[in-house]
Amino acid sequence: MASQGTKRSYEQMETDGERQNATEIRASVGKMIDGIGRFYIQMCTELKLSDYEGRLIQNSLTIERMVLSAFDERRNKYLEEHPSAGKDPKKTGGPIYKRVDRKWMRELVLYDKEEIRRIWRQANNGDDATAGLTHMMIWHSNLNDTTYQRTRALVRTGMDPRMCSLMQGSTLPRRSGAAGAAVKGVGTMVMELIRMIKRGINDRNFWRGENGRKTRSAYERMCNILKGKFQTAAQRAMMDQVRESRNPGNAEIEDLIFLARSALILRGSVAHKSCLPACVYGPAVASGYDFEKEGYSLVGIDPFKLLQNSQVYSLIRPNENPAHKSQLVWMACNSAAFEDLRVLSFIRGTKVSPRGKLSTRGVQIASNENMDAMESSTLELRSRYWAIRTRSGGNTNQQRASAGQISVQPAFSVQRNLPFDKPTIMAAFTGNTEGRTSDMRAEIIRMMEGAKPEEMSFQGRGVFELSDERAANPIVPSFDMSNEGSYFFGDNAEEYDN
């Protein structure tokens, strides 16, 4: 993207840094990872977990959730003011799984939030270390993106479920800051804005008074975040219109849905970061690795190297396929839920299948599930090659597409044709070009129609051997075009429920 120079890199967003050079960025990201790792080690000690239990991804998720809940100030305040039966607002906890007599047992633990905050700050040299908290939120978000298709949420806001490739980060909490905003897809931002506008339509006082002023500035800020994701002048001009509207209503909703559809071809720039579970960072720190000293990046080879040398386990339900569970977590670790499966298959070195073909449910185990038949197995999170994460949407291309997802959002900077089903997408653009945004709409449609099938995206960008740390010898991959490109292809993934 041309304006790259004016933006802070995501590592800076990730670490609240002012302008830093590459070495400083690597050190501050490393410091953040160190903090998460030290916190995780301490929690495993508190909970008396064995090494194996500490490497269980379900335990990692519970521990991450506990610290996120302990620092969720708004919710904590709300819980104190609106006490609900049987919930102690000062405590947080969740299921911890232990191996007892050759069987997995679930144990519900409860801790004072104050105590968890103390352990977290102690692991982070006394700081609140917001960057580390956001990092864990993005890992949870990436896992949700890989596990669930947001059909219901899309339909509720009037969008087409086939636009799911635009929904990265749709389950990120509001408090995820600049680093969170960077990884949100165009569809996620559109959905947040539509929800806001709908509230304004239904509630006369939404934009009024002292609160209304705050609401208005939040609305304009979200519009600017979305505008910054678009790469064409016409899309940005249309966002200006939406932002400046005196009284946002149905016309703005129409414009936003139009823009979301246009992003299936004229893709937005959305950041991709490899955020790993805390149970990967903990053992690495415990083994003596100093992330701050060595430096770390979320968008280069580092996460690949770390996963190459990590042992992570997962509980497996009786009829689940461990290899499929591994694929789910591998995609989440690489922030690749909406990437082209052919690119992923090449990088991973084994075939990556669409969601609907995987015999696996989510990673988390519900409290009512029976533990008797639970097994555990090693997650295979290694890769054959590594590639640089991208934040450009890439230019655009036609490809055989599917009944489910009709476009992709690249996660890796790797040369390819970008699949999208042009006739299906263009069919949504018939007729409606009147109104105050008509010239911009016409211009956007013209650009979409001009998108050429034979153009290559990320020209000359390749993948790298894991021994090639400096990215000196790019390998331009070859793809098996007979395979499906979309992950949520004609899909039956479970729906995400809060």
Rank of each mutant, 00 (worst) to 15 (best):
N250R: 03
D112I: 07
S170N: 05
L381V: 03
L276K: 14
G17E: 03
R156G: 06
R441C: 04
A218L: 12
R317M: 03
T147W: 08
C275A: 13
A323V: 13
L108V: 11
F488H: 05
S367E: 02
A411F: 06
D88G: 07
G93I: 04
I25S: 03
K184G: 12
A233E: 00
W120L: 06
R391Y: 06
G30Y: 03
Y78P: 02
Q241I: 12
I406W: 06
S335N: 06
G356C: 06
N370C: 10
A129P: 04
D240S: 12
N202T: 13
R99I: 02
M440I: 07
F412C: 08
I253G: 05
R174F: 02
W386M: 04
A472K: 05
L379E: 06
I194P: 03
D127H: 12
S407V: 03
R348W: 08
R117M: 15
S165L: 05
F230W: 15
A471D: 03
P277H: 08
Y97E: 13
A263G: 12
G35W: 08
S376N: 14
A179N: 06
L79G: 05
M13Q: 03
E73V: 15
E375R: 02
K87S: 09
M238F: 04
L226K: 09
I116E: 03
L264E: 11
Q12I: 08
A218W: 08
M137I: 13
R152F: 09
I265A: 13
I301F: 10
G431I: 14
V363D: 10
W386Y: 12
N319R: 14
K214D: 02
G212Q: 07
G93Y: 03
G35T: 11
R243K: 15
V29T: 09
A493V: 12
M66A: 11
E46Q: 09
H272V: 03
H140I: 12
Y487L: 04
Y289L: 14
M448I: 15
I388Q: 07
G393E: 09
S392F: 07
G180V: 03
R156N: 03
P453S: 11
E11M: 12
Q122V: 15
E484I: 14
R99F: 03
Q168E: 04
L298H: 06
V280L: 11
L344K: 11
D34N: 09
G177D: 04
L315V: 11
E115W: 02
Y219F: 10
G132N: 10
P83T: 08
V312H: 02
K91A: 05
R75S: 00
I197H: 01
I225G: 12
L256S: 12
E320H: 08
V285W: 03
G435M: 06
Q122A: 02
E192W: 03
I444G: 06
Q168H: 05
R118G: 09
I119M: 13
E469M: 08
L49F: 15
N224K: 15
A153M: 02
G228R: 11
T157S: 15
L315G: 02
R246Q: 14
E81T: 09
L306Y: 09
R400F: 04
M456C: 12
A471W: 00
F304H: 07
M426S: 10
Q405L: 02
G450F: 10
E64C: 10
V363P: 01
L264N: 06
S141F: 14
Q399L: 09
V280Q: 00
T15R: 00
F488K: 02
R267S: 00
A234S: 14
S402C: 07
V408L: 11
Y97K: 15
K91P: 04
E495V: 15
V363A: 15
S377A: 12
M1E: 10
G212I: 11
I265N: 03
F346M: 15
G158P: 04
G126R: 13
A323F: 14
A472G: 06
E254S: 07
P474Q: 02
G462Q: 00
R99D: 05
I63N: 01
G54W: 05
H324I: 06
F479L: 11
R117F: 07
E294L: 01
V186M: 02
R389E: 08
E484Y: 00
V29W: 06
A70R: 03
S402D: 01
P419K: 12
K452S: 11
P173C: 07
I41L: 12
N144F: 05
S457F: 01
M32P: 07
Q149V: 08
I406K: 09
T350Y: 00
K351P: 13
I63F: 09
I197F: 06
A129D: 00
K229V: 05
E369C: 06
L56V: 12
R121H: 12
P277V: 13
I201N: 04
R382H: 05
N483R: 00
I257E: 06
F420S: 15
G356S: 08
G132Y: 05
F39S: 11
L154Q: 01
A153F: 12
T350I: 04
A70G: 15
L68H: 14
A286W: 15
R221Q: 08
G460F: 02
S165Q: 03
S377Y: 03
E292A: 08
F206M: 08
G185Y: 09
S3A: 13
L256C: 12
S9P: 00
K184W: 10
E294M: 07
A153R: 07
W139F: 14
V312N: 13
I444F: 11
A323R: 13
K198L: 11
A271T: 01
P83K: 01
I365Q: 08
P477G: 00
S314H: 04
F304V: 15
V67S: 11
V476A: 15
N224D: 10
N417G: 09
R221W: 10
S478C: 01
E46M: 08
D491L: 02
R106S: 05
N250Y: 03
K98F: 06
R361S: 04
G394L: 00
R204K: 09
E11R: 10
M105S: 09
G5K: 00
L379D: 02
P410M: 05
R342V: 03
P303E: 09
G450I: 11
R75T: 13
D127S: 11
R348D: 07
K273H: 01
A27S: 11
G268P: 13
Q415T: 03
E292Q: 14
K325T: 11
R389C: 01
V463W: 00
L133Q: 08
K229F: 13
G132I: 15
L166G: 01
Q409C: 15
Q231S: 10
R391I: 07
R243G: 04
L276S: 12
R102W: 15
S376T: 11
T360V: 14
S297N: 02
H272A: 04
A278T: 09
S478H: 14
Q327T: 03
V343I: 15
M440K: 05
R384F: 08
P354W: 02
T350Q: 07
T378S: 15
R121Y: 10
D34F: 12
G17Q: 14
N125R: 09
M66T: 09
M189C: 14
K229R: 03
V270R: 09
R117T: 11
K7E: 02
M447V: 13
L47T: 12
R8P: 09
A401Y: 04
M440N: 09
T430Q: 01
M136I: 15
N76Y: 03
T23K: 05
Q149R: 14
K227R: 02
R246D: 02
K98R: 15
K452F: 14
V190M: 14
M1V: 07
M167F: 07
A181N: 04
R446L: 07
A271K: 04
G132F: 02
M189R: 01
D302G: 00
G450V: 06
Q399W: 09
S392C: 07
A260R: 02
M440H: 12
G349P: 12
Q168V: 08
A323Y: 06
N205M: 05
G268A: 03
E24C: 07
G300Q: 08
A260T: 13
L381W: 03
R199N: 05
T378A: 14
G300S: 14
Y281G: 03
Q398W: 05
A182H: 13
A366Y: 08
V242P: 03
V414F: 06
I265T: 13
A427S: 13
T134D: 10
N59M: 07
F412M: 12
R152M: 05
E380T: 03
M222L: 01
N124F: 13
I475N: 01
S28F: 11
N59C: 04
V285N: 10
G35P: 04
Y111R: 02
K229L: 05
V270K: 05
T130E: 05
A251G: 05
G212P: 06
S486R: 02
D497P: 00
T23R: 12
A251W: 07
Y313W: 13
G460P: 00
E64M: 11
A233D: 01
E339C: 03
E107W: 05
Y78D: 04
E455R: 12
L307A: 13
D160T: 08
R65D: 06
S345T: 13
Q311W: 01
N76M: 13
R199E: 09
D51N: 15
A472I: 02
F291I: 09
